[in-house]
Design a protein around this nucleic acid. Structure first.
Length: 622
RNA sequence: GGACCCGUGGUGUAGCGGCCCAACAUGCCAGCCUGUCACGCUGGAGAUCGCCGGUUCGAAUCCGGUCGGGUCCGCCA
C-alpha cells in the first residue's frame, strides 16, 4: 500500500498505531486508539493498540510504571486509551513479523483511559470469525472497525478519488444535480417525496441524473461528470440497493467511439490506481455486437475470463435438403418452428453424476427451458445419454464436431425459442464456469457490448419499448427504420422495421457483471419525437413528462452521449465481494430496513398533517 | 407477487420426538503468572432453544402461522 501522509500530531497522539518503526527506537511517543487485545501476565501487561492505520504493541511493566500498570490491568477490549512512553526495539526473538510495527513496542510510562467500552456483540479482532450479517448491520460502526470492512471503504475512497482525477485531467466539470426532481416514466418505480409548500404534489428522487445531464450538454458544459446518488424503489438483490451510487458522465460533440474511447482509458487508469495488483485481461477491451454476445455467451454481460462458448447445432441436425432430420422429435420440431438448438461443452464433465445433471436440468427449467439434453462423449466418440439412441452415427459425429467435444466431455443442449435457448445456456455457462473454477478471480476482464436493439415489442400495450433508455440514439444507417410497416407511427405491430433498428447503446461488463451502460443520444428533435411516438407517447404525454428537455432541444442541442457506471458494483468487484453491501458503509437489508437506524419508521402524526396526508392502509393485492 | 434456506448462552456452532431445565469452542467474570502476540493454567457466571398456536403422555426437535435475515424468479439498467 502506498505511504499515506501521517496525520498531524494532536494533543492525543504524536503518531498513529501503524507508524512506528525500528528507526524510532529511543524516541518518545504518544499513541491513542482502541484496545485490540490485552495479554495480562500479572506484573507485565501487553496491549495491542489499534487505530485505522495499524496495531502497535504496548508493554506496561509494573516495576517501571506502577500507576500505568494499575490502569492497564483495568483496561478491556475496545476501551479507548492514550499511552505515553518510549519507543523501543523489541528484544531479539520477540519481534512480530505479522505487524508492520512488529519490530518495536511502546514502553508505557502513562496509560489514560479516555472511554470505557461494553463488550462488543461480536469479535472485532478475529478476521476469520463468521458473523451474522444482520448483527453486523445493526452495529455497523463496530463492523467497520474491523480491518476487512475498513479496508474496503478505504479502497472505495481510492476508487472515487481516481475517478475524479481521471475526469479532471480530461477536462470534465463535476456538477451536482438536485435530488428532489420530477417523476419520469423511465424504468423503475420512483421514490416519492410529498411537498409541504404545495400540498397534493410530490417530488421524485432521481433514478439517475439522465435528463439533467443532457440539459447540461444543451447548456454547453461539454464534458460533465458526477458521483451521483440514485434511487430506485424496486426489490433488492445482492447487487442492488434502493439507493446506490453511479459515476455519471456525458460528453458533447461525440460519437460512440469517442465516448467508449474515453471511458475505456479512464477505466484502465482507475483500475490501475485502485487495484494495481489485478491484471486487466485484454486492452483494448473486446467489443461485441449485442447479437454476437448473445450468440456466443448467451449474455449481454459476458464473463470472458473463460471460453466454453455456445455453439449452434442446427447444421449438424439438418439433412442435405435443409430440413430438420436429427431423428429426435424435440430438436426437429424446434428447428422447424423457428427455434434454436444450441449447446455448450462441459470439459471433463462426461462422468458427471446423475445428481449433478439433475441440478443443471433444474437450473435450466428454472430459467424457462423445457428441458436439458446431455450427451457424454464415450471413449471411441460415441455419445451417451437418454436421447443418444435417436441420433444416427453420422449425426452424432456432426454434433461432436460442432461441440468440439472429446472423450470425457459433456455436451449440454437446449432446444427452445431463440431467446430462451441463449439465456438458459448463458446462465448454465456461468454456473458451470463457477463450479469448475474456470475464471481467474484476480483477473479484471472488461468488455464492451454494443448495438443493442433500439426497441422490444411490448405486446401488452402494443408499442415499442426502449431497450435501455428512451433517449438512446439509433445508429445512423438505421435511422430510416424508425417507422412502422404502414408508416403511421400510431399503428404499430411486431413486424415493424423499428424492431430491426440498432441503438448506439453500449454496455461495459466486468467479469460477468454489468458495470455500466450508456448511449449516444437522440439529439435531433424530430428523430426524438419519432422514437417517442413508436414508444407510444403522444405529444401531450411527451410534453408532460419530458417538457424541459424537449423544449431545450429547440434551442440548439449539440450531439452528445454518455454513460453511467455502478460504483458500488465496481467496488464490489475490485474487492472480490459477492454483494455491494460489503462496500457500502451503511447498506439496507433486502426488505429495505436500516437495522442500525431502524428506518423506515412511522412518521409523526404532525408530519402527516402538515403534508395533508393520511395513511389509509396497505393497498389491496392485485 | 412467488420459491427456497436460516433463526439454540454475548458470538459461532452441535443436538432434530423422551437419555437435553441443552453440548462444544470462543467471549465474559475472578484468581495465578515478567516476554506474549489467537499467551497459558485454575475456577465461575451465562440460553427454556426468534415469537404465537397446534399435534403428542412428552417438542429445541413434528405441523401451521408470524416476525427477522439471506439467495433466487418476477421486477429492476
Amino acid at each position: 500500500m502506498s505511504a499515506e501522509p501521517a496525520p498531524l500530531a494532536t494533543p492525543y497522539r504524536t503518531h498513529t498505531c501503524g507508524q512506528l518503526r525500528v528507526d524510532d527506537d529511543g524516541r518518545d511517543a504518544k499513541l491513542a486508539g482502541w484496545v485490540h487485545r490485552r495479554r495480562d501476565y500479572g506484573k507485565l501487561v501487553f496491549i495491542d493498540l489499534r487505530d485505522r492505520h495499524g496495531i502497535t504493541q504496548v508493554v506496561v511493566d509494573a516495576a517501571d510504571a506502577p500507576e500505568a500498570h494499575a490502569t492497564a490491568s483495568r483496561v478491556r477490549s475496545e476501551f479507548v486509551i492514550v499511552v505515553e512512553g518510549a519507543v523501543a526495539r523489541r528484544q531479539p526473538g520477540t519481534e512480530n513479523p505479522k505487524l508492520a510495527t512488529g519490530a518495536v513496542e511502546l514502553q508505557a510510562r502513562m496509560v489514560t483511559i479516555l472511554n470505557e467500552a461494553k463488550t462488543p456483540p461480536f469479535y472485532l479482532n478475529d478476521p476469520d470469525a463468521p458473523i451474522d450479517e444482520s448483527l453486523r448491520l445493526r452495529y455497523r460502526y463496530l463492523d467497520i472497525r474491523r480491518e476487512a470492512m475498513l479496508s474496503r471503504l478505504v479502497m472505495r475512497s481510492r476508487l472515487v478519488h481516481a475517478i475524479r482525477e481521471a475526469h479532471h485531467a480530461s477536462g470534465f466539470v463535476e456538477v451536482e444535480t438536485p435530488n428532489l426532481i420530477k417523476s419520469t416514466p423511465e424504468g423503475a418505480r420512483d421514490f416519492i417525496v410529498p411537498s409541504r409548500l404545495q400540498p397534493g404534489t410530490v417530488y421524485a428522487l432521481p433514478q439517475s441524473p439522465q435528463q439533467l445531464k443532457q440539459l447540461l450538454m444543451v447548456a454547453g458544459v461539454d464534458r460533465y461528470f458526477q458521483i451521483a446518488r440514485c434511487f430506485r424503489d424496486e426489490d433488492m438483490r445482492g447487487d442492488r440497493q434502493p439507493e446506490f451510487t453511479q459515476l455519471d458522465l456525458e460528453m458533447s460533440f461525440v460519437d460512440e467511439a469517442a465516448v467508449m474511447g474515453f471511458v475505456e482509458q479512464m477505466v484502465i487508469e482507475v483500475s490501475r490506481a485502485t487495484v494495481p495488483d489485478r491484471p486487466i485481461r485484454a486492452i483494448p477491451f473486446p467489443v461485441f455486437e449485442y447479437e454476437d454476445a448473445m450468440e456466443r455467451y448467451g449474455s449481454d454481460k459476458p464473463d470472458i475470463r473463460f471460453g466454453m462458448e455456445l455453439f449452434d447445432l442446427a447444421p449438424a441436425l439438418t439433412g442435405p435438403d435443409g430440413s430438420p432430420a436429427s431423428g429426435f422429435r424435440v430438436f426437429d420440431e424446434t428447428l422447424a418452428g423457428g427455434g434454436r438448438v444450441k449447446g455448450m461443452t462441459g470439459p471433463g464433465l462426461g462422468g458427471a453424476s446423475r445428481r449433478e445433471i439433475d441440478e443443471l436440468t433444474e437450473i435450466a427449467k428454472r430459467f424457462g427451458a423445457r428441458g436439458l439434453v446431455h450427451l457424454a462423449v464415450q471413449p471411441g466418440g460415441e455419445l451417451h445419454g437418454p436421447i443418444a439412441k435417436f441420433l444416427a452415427p453420422e449425426t452424432q459425429a456432426a454434433v461432436r464436431a460442432a461441440a468440439r467435444a472429446g472423450e470425457g466431455d459433456l455436451i449440454l443442449v437446449i432446444a427452445d425459442k431463440a431467446e430462451t435457448t441463449n439465456d438458459v445456456l448463458g446462465r448454465l455457462r456461468v454456473e458451470l464456469g463457477a463450479r469448475l473454477g474456470l475464471a481467474d478471480p484476480n483477473e479484471l476482464a472488461y468488455c464492451w457490448v454494443h448495438h443493442f436493439p433500439m426497441y422490444q415489442w411490448d405486446a401488452e400495450h402494443g408499442r415499442w419499448d426502449a431497450t435501455h433508455n428512451p433517449f438512446s440514439g439509433v445508429v445512423p444507417e438505421d435511422e430510416a427504420l424508425l417507422t412502422t410497416t404502414s408508416g403511421d407511427l400510431d399503428v404499430r405491430d411486431p413486424g415493424d422495421p423499428a424492431g430491426r433498428a440498432k441503438a448506439m447503446q453500449y454496455d461495459i461488463a466486468l467479469n460477468g457483471w454489468e458495470l455500466g451502460g450508456g448511449s449516444v443520444r437522440i439529439w435531433n428533435r424530430d428523430l426524438l419525437a419519432r422514437s417517442f411516438n413508436l414508444q407510444g407517447y403522444s405529444i401531450e404525454q411527451m410534453k408532460e413528462r419530458f417538457g424541459a428537455i424537449l423544449e431545450a432541444f429547440e434551442y440548439g442541442a449539440p450531439p452528445h452521449g454518455g454513460i453511467a457506471l455502478g460504483i458500488d458494483r465496481w467496488a464490489a468487484l475490485f474487492a472480490n465481494q459477492a454483494t455491494i453491501r460489503e462496500v457500502m458503509a451503511f447498506p439496507k437489508t433486502q426488505s429495505g430496513s436500516d437495522l442500525m437506524l431502524e428506518a423506515p419508521s412511522a412518521p409523526e402524526e404532525e408530519q402527516f398533517q402538515e403534508l395533508g396526508l393520511r395513511f389509509v392502509g396497505v393497498p389491496e393485492k392485485r
